[in-house]
């Protein structure tokens, strides 16, 4: 895609003797018009489907049964958002999304900080093989694990009516554990936290040890406060990812409506949205599923500094 010739190494050039003339004003001007035109066009495309959804949700029967159907609602049906909560098990889905996302995010932050810290700051026999595992495991796509993990949860010994051999009951399927356990550790999170802990000087650790602090106290009282920005980043990533997680949750809750989350519930009811007058209901439900994440994101935006993205690049 990109070919690279010899690099003109800046170090080899001698000291500057002359300041380069600035580009003419009109060229800078034209350049910035093009720049913002490109960005605005892209932004319009980014927003288009969302705008289409908000408009569509407001269409009433008069619009969908017209021939040809009208695009802009003739009489906006604001009541559709109340209908969503009345006619669909929206509160259950919503509550499940919140519960599952919070449990997973908390677990991921806890396990990632602990493991990331150990891998960055201790020289112990497990450090190197575990780090290689963390890096390597990220290369394994999730689809590979869907079938086996489904049955590992199904045949979990002594759980959900199973005997010691994992027979007889339904195991952990049909419980929140089935939704959360496969995600309590994130390889990427461990990796991210390790990179952050590496940046913290060893002197701090040594000084604390000389003061007689226990290893756990050092971690909790000294190290954790230092990586707060990283924890915030990981929290945001985890929250967004698991609020939106779909395939796994759908697989284990297909037959358990009490455990379905927003995306899963909406997907599994898609057949019921096939008739014309149900489509605006579907669009309104989608809007409700999207909004909370956007709100959380906008609230935490300031944490989202560009450098966080670079940490994945090594």
């Amino acid at each position: 895609m990109t070919t690279v010739d010899d690099v003109t190494h800046p170090a080899r050039t001698g000291p500057a003797t002359r300041v380069a003339a600035p580009r003419p004003r009109w060229r800078r001007h034209a350049g910035s018009v093009v720049k913002y035109a490109v960005l605005a066009l892209g932004a319009a495309l980014m927003i288009l489907p969302f705008a289409d959804m908000f408009v569509g949700a407001l269409r009433g029967p008069a619009d969908v049964y017209a021939n040809p159907p009208r695009y802009l609602p003739s009489d906006p049906q604001w009541g559709v958002y109340a209908r969503v909560f009345r006619e669909l098990p929206m509160t259950t889905w919503f509550a499940n999304s919140v519960i599952v996302t919070c449990i997973i995010t908390a677990c991921q932050v806890a396990t990632s900080t602990m493991a990331g810290y150990a891998l960055a700051k201790y020289r112990f026999a497990g450090a190197s093989p575990l780090f290689r595992l963390v890096v390597g495991a990220q290369m394994f796509p999730f689809f590979l694990f869907i079938i086996p993990i489904f049955f590992i949860l199904r045949f979990a010994p002594l759980m959900g009516g199973n005997d010691i051999a994992g027979q007889g009951g339904a195991g952990l399927l049909g419980t929140y554990a089935a939704l959360c356990l496969p995600f309590v550790v994130t390889w990427y999170g461990v990796f991210l936290m390790r990179q952050f802990f590496l940046g913290i000087p060893d002197d701090l650790l040594e000084a604390a040890r000389l003061d007689g602090a226990s290893e756990y106290r050092i971690f909790r009282s000294i190290m954790l406060p230092l990586v707060k920005p990283a924890i915030a980043t990981l929290t945001l990533f985890s929250f967004v990812y698991h609020w939106n997680e779909f395939i796994w949750t759908m697989t284990v809750t297909r037959a358990a409506p009490d455990l379905q989350t927003l995306p899963v519930g909406i997907y599994l009811l898609s057949g019921a949205f096939q008739t014309l007058d149900q489509k605006s209901l579907q669009q309104a439900a989608l809007a409700v599923s999207i909004l909370p994440v956007i709100v959380v994101f906008l609230m935490l935006q300031r944490l989202f500094v560009a450098s966080n993205f670079a940490s994945g690049v090594k």
Binding site: M114, L130, L133, A137, I152
Partner: peptide, 20 residues
């Protein structure tokens, strides 16, 4: 201490990576 810190990682790696 380090083993305690990585114990969830190890348990997870076994149950949700190696065994599957």
């Amino acid at each position: 201490a380090p083993w305690v810190f990585v114990s969830p990682l190890i348990a997870f790696a076994l149950i949700f990576f190696v065994v599957p």
